[in-house]
Amino acid sequence: MKSLLLIMVGAVFVNNFVLARFLGLCPFLGVSKKVETALGMGMAVTFVMVVASACTWLLQYLVLTPFNLDYLQTIAFILVIATLVQMVEMIVRKSSPVLYQSLGIFLPLITTNCAVLGLAVLNIQRNYSFVQSLVFAFGAALGFTLAMVLYAGLRERLTLCPVPRIFRGTPIELITAGLLALAFMGFAGLVPN
């Protein structure tokens, strides 16, 4: 139980996917103009990450390892994740148009997201059990959402600020992201890797 908690805290704060591992930077910078969309993206990522880590874990230990095909890991995982996201998009679109309106537009963005792939690979590298890998996925997604929402909040505030002209737009946003990452460095060492 304690190890699960450690995995969770480690994934959310200490080794935050975005701010410490620098995975999934494209949605982090792209979909963070408003808190609402950032939250929607975070929820979509949470869902995909948990499901994808379950599927890839099963694929690894039921197919790849027994047949000594570990070297196919990357390509096989990409295939599985992409298929999964596409299918989820179709199902959501049909079954719940409302959910699709709020969540669906983000799904194609996740298809080949490095954060999702990175998570699947890390699960295997660290020899996590099935349950551990699910907890790790959930924690990582939570950390991703946290970073997204924080950054989106900052960006909303930023638009109100009188920024010096040469810093306006992307430059100040990147500086803000860097400062946020620096702040998260304060968690370093809290949990052993």
Binding site: L64, Y71, L72, I75, V80, T83, M87, M90
Partner: peptide, 19 residues
């Protein structure tokens, strides 16, 4: 490897097609 990826791809295609 060929069989594995091929079948994976086939299954994925089947699923997506059905969906």
């Amino acid at each position: 490897a060929v069989i594995c990826l091929g079948s994976l791809g086939f299954v994925a295609a089947l699923l997506l097609g059905m969906a």
